[in-house]
């Protein structure tokens, strides 16, 4: 199932239980999978039109009235376009608004450079009082949604819209504020998020065959970052790769480097977008353009091990 469909159906279940949940769209309800939701809840699913700034502040106002608003649009419009509204009316005013940004980074595909957010995590990460969560697959999202609703405060959900690879199984357990260990290893750690988790898992398996034991850790919550797990892992492995679908400036690589350089300095390399804008193309093509395939992770891993 596509992630947007999963989100809509899980949100509908939660809306049945909790009448304070409202969903706000800015003329992207259909691409984000909320068409049926708006039919079933015409009062509580509001399309504000193409007015993201207004959507953010309407949500803040509704939150001050006791509602739990989810606002949803494509990632660049959910972040950089409404950065000040998020900073002041949502985070500074401490409102319980959940911001869903879909199509992060290269997953905007044929919408191209204008719609590709390579900076959204960097933009929001420097605003106090926001949680940044990037689900990997349906199982993780489904598991975390009730926790996101229970958490009182602003959360940015950086979400892939379409079908993802299956990474987790129903037996996997998650904690919103703890990294998820996917594979144990001793030679280096691969910290990864979003669509780069699949590439990292692949890289981990290939490295294993080459005699390199990589630990693979999914950092689904980039802020607040789980320092404890990161430090513990790099203390054991002594080196790290960070794989992310974002500019290597300001995103997960920066966040991990901030933790390690202060607490446990180790060689660390980034696999992600090297400070470039996006462009049109399918994901596999764009992964090649920006060197974001598993082979790029493997190459970086081998280099870093040599360094060590």
């Amino acid at each position: 199932m596509e992630m947007r469909k999963l989100l809509a159906s899980e949100l509908e279940k939660e809306m049945k239980k909790n009448e304070n949940i409202v969903v706000l769209n800015a003329d992207l309800a259909r691409p984000n999978g909320f068409e049926n939701l708006s039919i079933n809840y015409p009062e509580r699913v509001i399309n504000v039109g193409i007015a993201e700034q207004n959507m953010a502040c309407i949500a803040a106002g509704m939150s001050s009235y006791g509602f739990i608003p989810f606002i949803c649009t494509f990632t660049p419009f959910a972040t950089r376009r409404i950065c000040d509204q998020i900073a002041i009316s949502i985070c500074y005013a401490d409102q319980n608004v959940k911001i869903i940004g879909t199509d992060p980074g290269i997953s905007a595909e044929f919408n191209g450079g204008t719609h590709m957010s390579v900076e959204d995590i960097g933009v929001l990460r420097s605003i106090p009082n926001i949680v940044i969560f990037e689900p990997v697959d349906n199982i993780q999202l489904k598991n975390m949604l009730p926790r996101i609703i229970d958490y009182k405060g602003p959360i940015y959900i950086r979400m892939f819209r379409k079908q993802t690879g299956a990474i987790f199984t129903e037996s996997d357990k998650f904690d919103l504020f703890k990294c998820k260990l996917i594979k144990e290893g001793t030679d280096l750690t691969i910290f990864c998020s979003g669509i780069m988790v699949e590439e990292s898992v692949k890289a981990g398996k290939i490295l294993e065959k080459q005699g390199i034991k990589a630990e693979v850790v999914n950092v689904h919550t980039i802020k607040p970052i789980d320092k404890e797990t990161i430090i513990k892992s790099v203390e054991k492995t002594g080196a790290a790769i960070v794989a992310e679908n974002h500019n290597v400036i300001g995103g997960l690589y920066s966040a991990v480097a901030e933790v390690t350089c202060e607490n446990c300095p180790v060689p660390i390399k980034a696999v992600g977008i090297q400070d470039r804008f996006g462009q049109v193309g399918k994901i596999p093509y764009l992964k090649s353009v920006y060197n974001m395939h598993s082979i790029d992770i493997i190459r970086a891993a081998r280099e870093i091990i040599t360094l060590n």
Binding site: N54, G61, S64, F67, S89
Partner: peptide, 10 residues
């Protein structure tokens, strides 16, 4: 804009 949201909420 927040006031408009509050009016809608009310």
């Amino acid at each position: 804009s927040c006031a408009v949201g509050i009016a809608k909420a009310s």
